[in-house]
């Protein structure tokens, strides 16, 4: 615990560096494109339009657990995909981040955990840029905001801690086991379907197989994504208990991930 506190203080000392690197990440991402920064908004907008066309006009799925129109299904799915994209691209990028920045670790003195922090944070910013599109479509698709939308930052915080914990763990381990990258990309597909993004836990079919539902509730991402649904889609109070436990799990993962990272830290300059 003492180590963790010292590490966090060190991290805090380097906040300017983190901010600058996040800025660099965002700038470099759209450098050389014509629309530049607008891609941050355009990407989710196009995604939302695709969902609307595919589900609203073609597939036309209807489930009372989600809503009585297919448009609502598109909104529901978008509401889950947006935070999921933040989570999955953060994790996948974390796997590479120490290797890509190997020359920094070898030649310049700074705490290496800055790098996964930058990865998760710059993806958070991308998520936040997509958020206005989501907020814009909520009323259009026939939902209205409630006061519970104000709990959104809580959900984002839980997801940030969880994602960062996983990011630290993955980035440190991948230095020694390069194939984690490949394992991870498969795992992410599996994980995506284990999270209620394209379906809802409230769906009737799920109630008939309680063991599947139990398994799904063991997935921390389930409760995080459910949190977004509560805040923005259903407009109800977030499930405090479930999200609370998830936060605890996230903190433990963060602590464990940081501990592994710390233990392997000295091997990075030679191994990356």
């Amino acid at each position: 615990m003492k180590r963790l506190a010292a590490n966090l203080r060190e991290l805090h000392k380097h906040r300017l560096l983190i901010r600058t690197l996040v800025g660099r990440e965002l700038k470099a991402r759209y450098r050389g494109t014509i629309l530049g920064f607008f891609w941050s908004f355009l990407n989710p907008l196009l995604l939302m339009i695709v969902y609307t066309v595919v589900f609203g006009l073609i597939l036309n799925p209807r489930d009372l657990a989600i809503g009585d129109t297919a448009w609502l299904y598109a909104l529901y799915m978008f509401c889950g995909v947006l935070p999921w994209t933040w989570f999955s691209s953060s994790s996948l990028e974390s796997a590479n981040v120490l290797m890509i920045n190997g020359n920094l670790i070898k030649k310049i003195l700074f705490p290496a955990e800055v790098l996964p922090v930058v990865t998760v944070s710059s993806n958070l910013l991308n998520f936040l840029f997509g958020l206005p599109i989501l907020l814009f479509f909520v009323p259009i698709m026939g939902k209205s905001f409630t006061v519970y939308a104000l709990f959104l930052p809580v959900v984002i915080l839980v997801q940030y801690v969880f994602t960062l914990g996983l990011g630290l763990l993955i980035s440190a381990l991948t230095v020694h086991f390069r194939d984690i990258k490949d394992v991870l990309s498969n795992l992410m597909t599996f994980w995506f379907f284990s999270t209620p993004i394209i379906y809802s836990l409230k769906m009737e079919a799920l109630q008939r197989v309680p063991w599947v539902k139990t398994l799904l509730t063991l997935n921390p991402m389930t409760h995080i994504v459910e949190g977004y649904h509560s805040c923005l889609f259903y407009g109800e109070l977030i499930h405090w208990k479930r999200l609370g436990v998830t936060f605890l799990v996230s903190l433990i993962l963060f602590w464990a991930g940081y501990a592994v990272f710390d233990r392997l830290r000295d091997s990075f300059p030679e191994e990356v």
Partner: peptide, 19 residues
């Protein structure tokens, strides 16, 4: 070490200096 190839020298000076 730590220059990012895609961004300008000006921005790299700022980032490298902070590093």
């Amino acid at each position: 070490a730590g220059f990012h190839p895609e961004i300008s020298g000006r921005e790299n000076v700022a980032i490298n200096g902070i590093m």
